[in-house]
């Protein structure tokens, strides 16, 4: 509780600084504030500013996405407008295999990713070129967080949907918050930034870039440190423990009782 107040105070203090920085950037960099951010993206090989990449992205978009999102990404009945969603949203949606969506359902599920990394970046560059929006985080935005603070922020902001151990959880009407153990750090950042589908957006006022870093550090720690107690049983807690004792515990014990009583006869 106390910690939560501290972090919101902290972000409260950050707010003017962040907006000022954004303002300055906006004034300084022609072509929009967005351009300043995306110049140094996580995968540095692709220059999201380059006209060639954007054109390439436009072609891919027209071929794979336009049926739902419209030729100018303006949106259709089958898909929302992508104007202003930014490169982060595209990198997340396409990079985790959610887009292109295959079938209408409660929630676009993850599938095997359909594009190469360059193609994903090209799509992101194209969508980002339409209007400014949240951009793909840089590599140094993802590392060196504080694990303990991240854990607390995770329990307060994310656990109610994703489960305290990141095992995932059910939402209403067939929607669900996925497990987070297999998600790449960059996608975690983008998920917080863009709030895919039924997930709320955690903008930089809710969770500062520092907080996001901490959360990522916590998730990465869990990824790299399997449970000290042994098998994790999908981290589902008492349900899987209960099933385990009934299936394997009682199974083994009953088997042994039968063996013992059979021995004597």
């Amino acid at each position: 509780m106390r910690k939560k107040n501290v972090s919101s105070l902290k972000s409260g203090r950050r707010r003017p600084a962040v907006s000022a920085a954004l303002l300055v950037l906006g004034l300084l960099v022609t072509g929009g504030a967005y351009a300043a951010f995306s110049a140094s993206t996580a995968s540095a090989e692709v220059d999201l500013q380059s006209q060639q990449v954007i054109t390439e992205g436009q072609k891919l978009f027209a071929a794979n996405c336009a049926t739902c999102h419209g030729q100018q990404a303006q949106g259709t009945e089958a898909g929302p407008s992508l104007i202003g969603v930014g490169s982060a949203a595209v990198d997340f949606q396409v990079g985790t295999g959610r887009m292109p969506m295959q079938a209408q359902g409660p929630q676009a599920p993850e599938k095997p990713v359909q594009f190469t990394d360059e193609q994903v970046k090209a799509l992101a560059a194209y969508v980002a070129s339409l209007a400014p929006g949240p951009s793909i985080p840089t590599a140094d935005q993802l590392v060196n967080g504080n694990v303990a603070n991240g854990g607390e922020l995770f329990r307060i902001n994310c656990a109610m949907c994703h489960n305290v151990a990141g095992a995932g959880g059910a939402l209403t009407e067939g929607k669900y918050a996925p497990e987070l153990k297999s998600v790449e750090a960059v996608h975690v950042y983008e998920a917080m930034l863009t709030g895919p589908q039924n997930m709320p957006v955690f903008n930089d006022l809710n969770l500062t870039p520092e907080d996001k870093k901490d959360i990522i550090a916590y998730l990465e720690y869990n990824k790299n440190h399997p449970s000290v107690g042994g098998l994790e049983l999908s981290s589902l807690g008492p349900v899987s423990e209960g099933l385990f004792i009934w299936i394997f515990g009682i199974g083994a014990i009953v088997g042994l009782t039968i063996w013992i009583t059979a021995k004597s006869n």
């Binding site: 509780m1 939560k4 329990r155 307060i156 656990a159 109610m160 949907c161 994703h162 489960n163 305290v164 151990a165 095992a167 995932g168 959880g169 059910a170 918050a177 589902l236 807690g237 349900v239």
Partner: peptide, 8 residues
């Protein structure tokens, strides 16, 4: 902590 509740 009384504020967070975990899914599941």
């Amino acid at each position: 902590d009384p504020s967070p509740v975990s899914a599941g």
